[in-house]
Lab assay of single mutants.
Amino acid sequence: MKVIFLKDVKGKGKKGEIKNVADGYANNFLFKQGLAIEATPANLKALE
């Protein structure tokens, strides 16, 4: 799953980066902790 990092995550990505991560990692950790959002077309456009 492609995500946009909202904060730096050690060993995974930095704020503003768009990366592929495992679905479970994104859903169970990144999204719940507010560290990333899904890289949907709307979210990508808002990032610009």
Results as ranks from 00 to 15, higher is better:
residue 24 G to M: 11
residue 13 G to E: 04
residue 19 K to L: 11
residue 27 N to P: 06
residue 48 E to M: 13
residue 41 P to D: 14
residue 46 A to C: 10
residue 27 N to A: 13
residue 1 M to N: 03
residue 7 K to I: 10
residue 20 N to D: 13
residue 45 K to L: 14
residue 6 L to I: 11
residue 22 A to R: 13
residue 47 L to P: 06
residue 42 A to D: 13
residue 25 Y to G: 05
residue 43 N to Q: 07
residue 40 T to W: 01
residue 23 D to N: 14
residue 43 N to D: 03
residue 41 P to A: 13
residue 34 G to W: 06
residue 36 A to V: 07
residue 14 K to H: 11
residue 5 F to L: 08
residue 35 L to H: 05
residue 47 L to G: 05
residue 35 L to C: 03
residue 42 A to S: 10
residue 48 E to C: 09
residue 9 V to P: 01
residue 25 Y to Q: 05
residue 34 G to E: 07
residue 29 F to W: 11
residue 42 A to L: 09
residue 46 A to N: 11
residue 21 V to S: 02
residue 43 N to F: 07
residue 25 Y to H: 03
residue 17 E to K: 02
residue 31 F to Q: 04
residue 13 G to D: 03
residue 8 D to I: 02
residue 36 A to Y: 02
residue 38 E to Y: 05
residue 36 A to S: 01
residue 15 K to T: 08
residue 31 F to H: 01
residue 21 V to R: 00
residue 44 L to I: 14
residue 18 I to R: 00
residue 39 A to I: 03
residue 26 A to K: 04
residue 35 L to A: 06
residue 13 G to Q: 02
residue 6 L to N: 03
residue 2 K to W: 15
residue 12 K to A: 15
residue 3 V to C: 03
residue 48 E to I: 13
residue 8 D to F: 04
residue 15 K to L: 07
residue 12 K to P: 01
residue 42 A to Y: 07
residue 45 K to N: 09
residue 47 L to I: 12
residue 4 I to C: 00
residue 40 T to V: 04
residue 1 M to E: 03
residue 39 A to P: 02
residue 45 K to W: 09
residue 6 L to Y: 01
residue 25 Y to V: 09
residue 22 A to K: 14
residue 10 K to Q: 12
residue 19 K to A: 12
residue 33 Q to R: 14
residue 5 F to H: 00
residue 16 G to K: 01
residue 5 F to R: 00
residue 18 I to Y: 01
residue 17 E to C: 04
residue 22 A to C: 11
residue 24 G to C: 11
residue 29 F to M: 07
residue 15 K to H: 05
residue 25 Y to N: 05
residue 33 Q to V: 10
residue 36 A to Q: 00
residue 5 F to Q: 00
residue 16 G to T: 01
residue 38 E to W: 06
residue 37 I to H: 04
residue 18 I to S: 02
residue 40 T to D: 06
residue 36 A to G: 04
residue 30 L to G: 01
residue 10 K to S: 05
residue 22 A to S: 14
residue 13 G to N: 02
residue 30 L to D: 02
residue 4 I to A: 01
residue 21 V to I: 08
residue 29 F to Q: 07
residue 30 L to P: 02
residue 43 N to H: 08
residue 24 G to V: 13
residue 43 N to E: 05
residue 14 K to G: 07
residue 12 K to F: 14
residue 13 G to L: 02
residue 28 N to W: 09
residue 16 G to Y: 10
residue 3 V to A: 01
residue 17 E to M: 07
residue 31 F to W: 01
residue 6 L to W: 00
residue 25 Y to C: 04
residue 37 I to R: 04
residue 23 D to C: 10
residue 17 E to A: 06
residue 12 K to T: 10
residue 33 Q to N: 15
residue 47 L to H: 11
residue 9 V to E: 02
residue 30 L to K: 01
residue 44 L to Y: 04
residue 20 N to V: 15
residue 37 I to V: 12
residue 38 E to L: 10
residue 24 G to Q: 13
residue 7 K to V: 14
residue 37 I to N: 02
residue 9 V to D: 01
residue 31 F to P: 04
residue 31 F to I: 13
residue 47 L to T: 08
residue 41 P to N: 09
residue 35 L to S: 03
residue 43 N to T: 09
residue 31 F to E: 03
residue 12 K to H: 15
residue 17 E to Y: 02
residue 28 N to Q: 12
residue 43 N to S: 08
residue 11 G to Q: 05
residue 15 K to F: 06
residue 3 V to Q: 01
residue 33 Q to Y: 15
residue 41 P to V: 11
residue 2 K to G: 05
residue 30 L to S: 00
residue 16 G to W: 09
residue 47 L to A: 09
residue 7 K to G: 07
residue 19 K to D: 04
residue 4 I to R: 01
residue 41 P to C: 11
residue 19 K to H: 10
residue 17 E to T: 06
residue 32 K to G: 08
residue 30 L to M: 03
residue 37 I to E: 03
residue 27 N to Y: 14
residue 7 K to T: 12
residue 35 L to P: 00
residue 45 K to Q: 11
residue 48 E to Q: 13
residue 18 I to N: 02
residue 36 A to E: 01
residue 27 N to F: 14
residue 35 L to N: 03
residue 12 K to I: 15
residue 14 K to L: 09
residue 27 N to L: 15
residue 44 L to R: 06
residue 25 Y to P: 06
residue 11 G to K: 06
residue 32 K to W: 07
residue 33 Q to G: 08
residue 13 G to P: 01
residue 38 E to N: 04
residue 47 L to Y: 15
residue 24 G to Y: 11
residue 28 N to I: 08
residue 38 E to V: 08
residue 3 V to F: 00
residue 39 A to L: 07
residue 28 N to Y: 10
residue 2 K to H: 08
residue 34 G to A: 06
residue 11 G to A: 05
residue 44 L to K: 05
residue 45 K to C: 13
residue 36 A to H: 01
residue 15 K to V: 09
residue 4 I to L: 10
residue 21 V to K: 03
residue 14 K to M: 11
residue 8 D to E: 09
residue 2 K to S: 12
residue 28 N to H: 12
residue 3 V to E: 00
residue 10 K to V: 13
residue 48 E to P: 09
residue 44 L to S: 05
residue 28 N to P: 03
residue 36 A to W: 03
residue 22 A to N: 14
residue 8 D to A: 07
residue 35 L to M: 09
residue 2 K to M: 15
residue 22 A to V: 08
residue 45 K to P: 05
residue 23 D to G: 13
residue 45 K to T: 10
residue 27 N to I: 15
residue 41 P to G: 09
residue 32 K to L: 09
residue 32 K to S: 12
residue 35 L to D: 04
residue 17 E to V: 04
residue 22 A to G: 12
residue 33 Q to K: 13
residue 42 A to E: 14
residue 25 Y to R: 05
residue 10 K to E: 14
residue 43 N to G: 05
residue 15 K to I: 12
residue 17 E to L: 01
residue 8 D to M: 04
residue 42 A to I: 08
residue 18 I to G: 02
residue 26 A to H: 02
residue 19 K to V: 14
residue 39 A to Q: 02
residue 46 A to E: 12
residue 12 K to D: 10
residue 29 F to S: 06
residue 15 K to W: 05
residue 11 G to N: 12
residue 44 L to V: 10
residue 45 K to M: 13
residue 1 M to K: 10
residue 47 L to M: 11
residue 48 E to S: 12
residue 23 D to R: 15
residue 10 K to P: 15
residue 9 V to K: 02
residue 30 L to H: 00
residue 25 Y to L: 09
residue 33 Q to L: 15
residue 1 M to P: 05
residue 29 F to Y: 14
residue 9 V to M: 06
residue 40 T to R: 01
residue 37 I to T: 07
residue 38 E to P: 14
residue 16 G to V: 01
residue 29 F to G: 04
residue 12 K to R: 13
residue 27 N to D: 08
residue 1 M to Y: 08
residue 21 V to E: 02
residue 45 K to I: 12
residue 37 I to S: 03
residue 39 A to R: 00
residue 42 A to Q: 11
residue 40 T to K: 05
residue 16 G to M: 06
residue 24 G to S: 14
residue 14 K to W: 08
residue 8 D to P: 05
residue 27 N to H: 14
residue 40 T to P: 02
residue 6 L to A: 00
residue 35 L to R: 00
residue 23 D to T: 15
residue 4 I to S: 00
residue 31 F to Y: 06
residue 15 K to M: 10
residue 9 V to N: 01
residue 40 T to G: 05
residue 14 K to Y: 12
residue 10 K to I: 14
residue 31 F to G: 02
residue 36 A to F: 03
residue 21 V to C: 10
residue 39 A to H: 06
residue 10 K to N: 11
residue 35 L to W: 12
residue 26 A to R: 04
residue 48 E to F: 13
residue 44 L to E: 04
residue 39 A to V: 06
residue 7 K to R: 11
residue 1 M to R: 09
residue 40 T to A: 03
residue 39 A to E: 02
residue 31 F to T: 05
